[in-house]
Design a protein around this nucleic acid. Structure first.
Lengths: 192, 192
DNA sequence: CTGGGACTAGACTGACCAGTCTAGTCTAGA
DNA sequence: TCTAGACTAGACTGGTCAGTCTAGTCCCAG
């Protein structure tokens, strides 16, 4: 039973993803074909060009950043901590950092794609988070403020400086209670 | 009067900087020589290889991020706002974003350099900021907490999510009072 | 006035690489 | 059985590029 119309297309896509994550756009099509265990011609059979293959990979990578977020947590703090923990491990993990390194330098060549990638990943998370925060503000659990501003600030607090450290190869200190500490700071900043 | 031992070395360095900022490591040595108005051989006369030229440029770029920071501001809030304003305009300006885009993908090839670049730029700023915050904590103006944690959090709040937006080509909303709003959130989070 | 160092234009080598082309094989369905 | 589509290995084209080489010029210090 073949899983879907084109099994080799998927193999190429997976191989391309791991190649781009490992070496960025530098990865050659020959290398991708080799990793996929497929002839170079097969790559070009499924994708018109390296650029378009890269675009498909990039779209997929951007989607992977998304995190589930409980819409109306009974305990706001616990909900934010769970979200923060998940987001931090995704964004700061090896895959998240590699994704970042792969996408960032190519953005100027794919401006329209980049914007839609933002909307589908970080932008979407801001919206979801803002919705949760807004509900809480209305319910009186948080000071009234621009919920989008609050959401962006929380995301910045959660990964901002640690991402820089990871990108520059500086191991972020092993900090078990970091997420909790950050969420507590956030809650104090937006307390009534 | 020649400004220093090797005027052409400086011209090459400047041309390389602007080329790398514009097109990343992709920029060819021929292009750099052309921009500098110099023969390719002159580039190789002053720098043994493209990699080493890039390292010199990278070191210089990292240093440029540094921001002056008043050591003991009489008004903490005003001091932080001034710092935040300066840092945001440097980190989020076109040059700061281009620097980021240029350096990030090359870091895996220059691990040792990258760490020292972090220490000389963002890491150094964390230290300076932490020193200011620690003094304020001791003086009773802020809640006692790990000053380095607080400093990293503030940096994350100041540029965290807006840098993502800029990197992905999403114009950050024109927000006049943003820095003040962020600093106020920070101060609430670390109030006594 | 001469040697050396900074510089020049431009040709060249060797490597890599995107994308094409050839000449096929295999397989599933009509 | 015929055929079309997915696939194969591998050669090839044309372009780019780091780094070298040649054969010089210009200028200054000794």
């Amino acid at each position: 039973m073949t899983p879907s119309p084109a099994p080799n297309r998927e193999r190429v896509l997976r191989a391309a993803t791991s190649a781009f994550l490992a070496r960025g756009y530098r990865s050659s099509v020959d290398e991708i074909a080799r990793r996929a265990g497929v002839a170079k011609q097969t790559v070009y059979h499924h994708f018109p060009s390296k650029d378009l293959l890269f675009k498909d990979v990039a779209r997929e990578l951007a989607r992977r950043i998304l995190i589930e977020l409980e819409e109306s947590p009974s305990d706001l703090r616990a909900g934010l901590v769970a979200f923060g923990e998940a987001y931090r491990s995704r964004a700061l993990g090896a895959a998240g950092i590699a994704t970042f390194r792969t996408l960032v330098p190519e953005i100027p060549r794919f401006k329209a794609l980049a914007r839609s990638m933002y909307e589908a990943s970080a932008g979407e998370m801001v919206r979801r988070l803002a919705a949760v925060l807004e509900r809480e503000m209305r319910a009186g659990g948080l000071r009234r403020d621009d919920p989008k501003f609050a959401a962006e600030l929380l995301l910045g607090m959660l990964v901002g400086h640690d991402r820089i450290k990871r990108l520059f190869g500086v191991a972020p200190a092993r900090t078990p209670g970091r997420t909790e500490a950050i969420v507590d700071c956030f809650l104090r900043a937006f307390a009534k």
